[in-house]
Computed example of a mutant assay.
Amino acid sequence: MSAKTPPFRVAIIGTGGIAHAHARALAELGDRAVLVGVADVDRSRAEGFATEFGASGVYTDAADLLAAETELDLVHICTPPQTHATLAIQAMRAGVPALVEKPTVLSLAEMDELVHVNAETGVPVLTVFQHRFGPAALRLRRLAASGALGRPLVATCETLWYRPDEYFDVPWRGRWEVEGGGPTMGHGIHQFDLLLAVLGPWALVSAFAARQSRPTDTEDVSIALAQFDNGAVATVVNSVVSPRETSRLRFDYEYATVEVEHLYGYAESDWTFTPAPGHEDLVPLWAADAEPDVTSGHRLQIEAILDALEAGREPEVSIAEARRTMEFVAATYASAFRGLPVAAGEITGDDPFTRSMDGGAVPWAPVKEVVA
């Protein structure tokens, strides 16, 4: 990639709730980024958003925005999940890197289409996985990669959240065809993406999923056991039926345990570092470069993306990394609904779980009548 010079010209497609987090993050970056255009099918909502955040261009169609704003450096896609693939492809074909809210797409088939267009155009498509970019997570990844912590042995990843029945009144929530899945796809994905970023490629998943109480087509709870290429094993729990909400990650290495417990964003104080006996010399390494006043969130990832664009580097989180996380989602569903372990790389071709996360195999789905 060729280096670009700030201020970066940015647009946002979709001006609902999560778009506000993107716009506030851009505003916090000061003169480095300028929001030049917004698009939303609801023009009045787009106009209100543009007024609030100082965007000059207002559009009701993403194609019109991409055609009119010819010098964009980055476009944020903040629309419901079923639109992500189409909009990301439009952006890439227009030559504009796209930052897509999670989940990137609804299926591995859509993800592979993005991979194809990315290879064809050379234009990045990125996924919002902001928890990778907090200072403590970056420090953990550096220490783990250096070997200072020894081998990773066991990990725990829990997203125990609570969403009342009314949460699912929004038409696209809790439906396979428009959201892609339940808490495995839309809630816990942030935590286990960080798990994958720290532990590296996964090898095998064995999972269970259930619809315990929420009025959804999808699961409201899933539990997965995962093996990794490096020999580590992990449990991953995703829930939207848990009244005491928490997000928790724990990594047990040969020489230390590293933990974080937070809810929607972590600070330095949310992390705990416990050296194994005889390895107390690791404590100063963990404490080095701590940034106690910084909380993980959209700003840190967007800032890292702009740094990469300015340096001419490939920004994160790349389509290859995001695909690994999405394949973990598909494997969780496939294992849960088939009752069998799923290996990395196993879901390919015409496998139903390539085409959709439910794979046509949801045990609580109503039986469709066959018309003669």
Rank of each mutant, 00 (worst) to 15 (best):
Q191V: 14
G174R: 11
G231D: 13
W176P: 00
L140P: 10
L199I: 06
S146T: 14
A232T: 12
G134T: 08
L140A: 07
F208T: 12
Q227S: 15
G174N: 11
T218M: 04
T216W: 08
I189R: 12
A197V: 07
T159L: 06
V233G: 05
G150Y: 05
G122T: 12
A155F: 09
E158S: 06
P215Y: 02
G182A: 05
P243I: 07
V237E: 06
L225Q: 15
E245V: 13
F192D: 03
A224S: 11
P171S: 02
F168S: 04
S213I: 07
G186W: 03
D193T: 13
F208S: 13
P201Q: 06
P201C: 04
A148M: 06
V154M: 11
V233A: 14
Y162S: 12
V236D: 11
V240D: 12
R132A: 08
R141W: 13
P152K: 09
D165T: 09
T121I: 06
H190Q: 13
L126W: 06
P135M: 01
H131T: 02
R163I: 01
Y167N: 01
T159S: 15
V123K: 00
L138W: 00
T121R: 06
L149D: 08
L143Q: 08
F192S: 03
C157I: 03
A224I: 02
V221A: 01
V125G: 02
Q130F: 12
S213N: 09
G174D: 12
E179M: 09
S239N: 10
H190P: 02
L196C: 12
E245G: 06
T218L: 07
R132K: 12
R173L: 15
F133G: 05
P164R: 06
Q130D: 10
N230L: 05
I223S: 07
L194Q: 08
G147L: 09
R244T: 12
L199S: 05
G174L: 09
D165L: 01
A232K: 06
G200H: 10
T121L: 07
F192L: 04
V236R: 13
R151Q: 12
G231M: 11
G181H: 01
A226G: 03
W161P: 01
T127G: 00
G134A: 13
E219T: 02
G188L: 04
R214H: 12
R163N: 08
H131A: 00
R214Q: 15
G147Y: 14
A145C: 07
R163H: 08
P201A: 11
W161F: 15
Y162I: 07
V221M: 05
L225V: 07
D220C: 05
L160D: 08
T121Q: 04
V221I: 04
Q130E: 11
G182H: 06
E120C: 09
F228G: 10
E158K: 08
E177V: 14
I223P: 00
V241E: 04
H187P: 00
H187N: 05
R173P: 03
G188M: 03
G181Y: 02
T235N: 09
A145F: 10
T246C: 09
E179K: 03
V240T: 14
L160K: 13
L194Y: 13
L204D: 11
G122I: 12
R211S: 09
E158G: 01
